[in-house]
Design a protein around this nucleic acid. Structure first.
Lengths: 155, 155
DNA sequence: CACGGGATGCAACCATTTTGCAATTGCGAC
DNA sequence: GTCGCAATTGCAAAATGGTTGCATCCCGTG
């Protein structure tokens, strides 16, 4: 249990692995991040955190997410608007479809696209460090999207 | 010459097509954008513009790029950092490799990836409005990247 | 259970972008 | 050509999203 912690580990384990102290704010922030199934921005995270502990400052949320992002515990996205949005990095890697009409975000993964990316990078003499694929979409027709309301994951 | 203007058209044609007045600042800003081969941010654009006409305000550059972006004359990118960067939209569509060590940006295009994206969107009941694929890369080895110094385009 | 450095809250600050407003100017009508 | 007026601009102030200095607090080791 000592290699590369994720949000599904306990706060104690994560902090020990990263050489950080276990504090009240960190407990709450990591718990919120661990149980989030969406892609909240920092202000939304702070809103959720203060429902559990109203004394936690927004600055602490900013400091904590940056820390967790640097340590690859969470991933940062921006999705067009200015704000940074976060999700746990322990889910398998995936990209995003963003419904431009509703803001809904659908996760997907394509091994084939990933393979083509590797190929392109290699052809240019590079190796991939990370990548970001966001597809902004609109419903094909008004009925088609009614089947699900929440983010899903597909292959 | 009356359908969908691009930066390679004259400023007069672009403005006429968009119902805008031809002004000094717009002449200079569009000229700079048309001849740019890189992806300048707004402050850099303003720096280039003021070398030709020092009286143009930064706010005007912001207003003009937003206008051109809304009209799909230019494209906006963000590439990780906070700033918006722009490039002419009349180049054929392409995505970007970003060298994380040097900041170099290499343009590429893959019909196959585009096709797979369409397929994924359709499978979820959506059509693609736009998309953004950025691959952050590092040199495979220290020699391999020495063959070119400037952005290129490939298939 | 005392101590020291890491962590926090707060407010001030920073970078980027937007906006209110008064002054200027392009351009169609005469 | 020039008049009139709305579009455009410059400027400064403000909004937005995020960072930071600092005094205080408190985790965890001894």
């Amino acid at each position: 249990m000592s290699r590369k912690p994720t949000l599904s580990d306990s706060v104690e384990e994560i902090c020990r692995a990263l050489g950080l102290r276990v504090t009240g704010p960190r407990r709450v922030i990591m718990q919120i991040l661990a149980e989030a199934t969406d892609h909240p921005d920092t202000v939304e995270l702070h809103r959720r955190v203060t429902q559990i502990d109203p004394s936690v400052a927004l600055a602490t949320v900013y400091r904590t997410v940056k820390l967790l992002e640097d340590k690859k515990i969470i991933e940062r996205h921006t999705f067009g608007d200015g704000r940074a949005r976060y999700e746990s990095a322990d889910h398998a890697h995936h990209d995003h479809l963003i419904d431009v009409e509703t803001g809904d975000i659908i996760e997907f993964h394509s091994d084939e696209i990933e393979r083509l990316q590797e190929e392109i990078a290699r052809k240019h003499g590079y190796k991939i460090v990370s990548h970001k694929l966001e597809i902004f979409v609109a419903p094909l027709d008004k009925q088609a999207k009614s089947t699900s309301r929440k983010a899903r994951k597909t292959s």
